[in-house]
């Protein structure tokens, strides 16, 4: 297992220059996410239209490269998706980063998100990768705060 499979150039790049970084006002949903173990903190903003489609999504905060890159890639992926599609992606992403290392990754359906598959070989880092997904979920469910510990 090479570190490069976790810290691929794409991930390093997203962590250094996160996309959709900043606030979104007005927004229909937002929530805080916090991973107390490593101090990762982020806030996500979503604008969901009447057809349950995510028109825009942004995030801000700071954390490790995995948490920032994951949030950055997630926002790129979620723009334009319906809430039902989000829920399916949430499950697929969670499955991808927690599955056995020998399990194949469905790169076609996961798209850009598949660069984060390497996380599953680093069990202590899975929480970093899924924090942003839990944060969006709690924003949509109006819980306000998501935690991965």
């Amino acid at each position: 297992m090479d570190l490069r499979s976790l810290y691929q150039q794409v991930i390093v790049n997203h962590s250094k220059s996160p996309r959709n970084f900043g606030t979104l006002e007005p927004c229909s949903h937002d929530a805080d996410g916090h991973n107390p173990l490593c101090g990762d903190r982020l806030h996500v903003y979503l604008q969901v239209n009447d057809d349950d489609r995510i028109e825009d999504v942004r995030f801000e905060g700071d954390g490790c490269a995995i948490s920032v890159a994951s949030a950055s890639i997630m926002t790129e992926t979620l723009k334009g998706k319906t809430l039902a599609e989000f829920r399916a992606l949430f499950d697929d992403f969670q499955h991808m980063v927690t599955s056995d290392v020998t399990a194949p990754v469905d790169e076609e359906s996961m798209g850009k998100l598949s660069v984060l598959a390497g996380v599953r070989e680093f069990p202590s880092r899975v929480k970093c990768a899924i924090l942003c997904w839990h944060t969006v979920k709690s924003a949509l469910e109006h819980e306000g705060v998501a935690r991965t510990e």
């Binding site: 297992m1 570190l3 490593c38 995995i66």
Partner: peptide, 19 residues
């Protein structure tokens, strides 16, 4: 980030704390 550093060092056999 210290957490990334901890992971990278671990793969080199160096155990430190990050947090």
């Amino acid at each position: 980030h210290p957490h990334d550093l901890g992971t990278i060092l671990d793969r080199e056999g160096v155990a430190i704390r990050a947090g």
